[in-house]
Amino acid sequence: MSFSSDDIKNVATLARLHVDEEKVEKLGQDINNILALVDQLKAVDTTGIEPMAHPMDAVQILRADEVTETDQREKFQACAPATEEGLYLVPKVIE
């Protein structure tokens, strides 16, 4: 598998990252080098092996359904750039 310049731009867009045009090719090479390592791993026969969901061999602890949080809106909103009527304000988004 190899990554083209268009793939780099697409992934950057999805991740909301700005990538300078002149860096696209270099980044593509770097990622292709990493993917080559992945290809080596993929050569291992994993037939019949359950995919690993987490490196720790443990299971999730669950909590009881209780309300334990109190309202701390004032503290949280003190570090937000803009708030009004209890809402966090963000640049306008309409699909």
């Binding site: 909590r63 359904d65 209780e66 309300v67 334990t68 949080e69 309202d71 701390q72 809106r73 949280f76 909103q77 009527e85 209890g86 809402l87 966090y88």
Partner: peptide, 28 residues
């Protein structure tokens, strides 16, 4: 449920905006 799936915030409907949004819900 009384509380959220990943935090202990209340799920009650109709509260004042963001008064039931904890640090986990805000992704701090």
């Amino acid at each position: 449920t009384k509380s959220k799936i990943f935090s202990g915030s209340s799920t009650a409907f109709g509260a004042e905006p963001n008064t039931q949004a904890s640090a986990v819900d805000l992704a701090l």
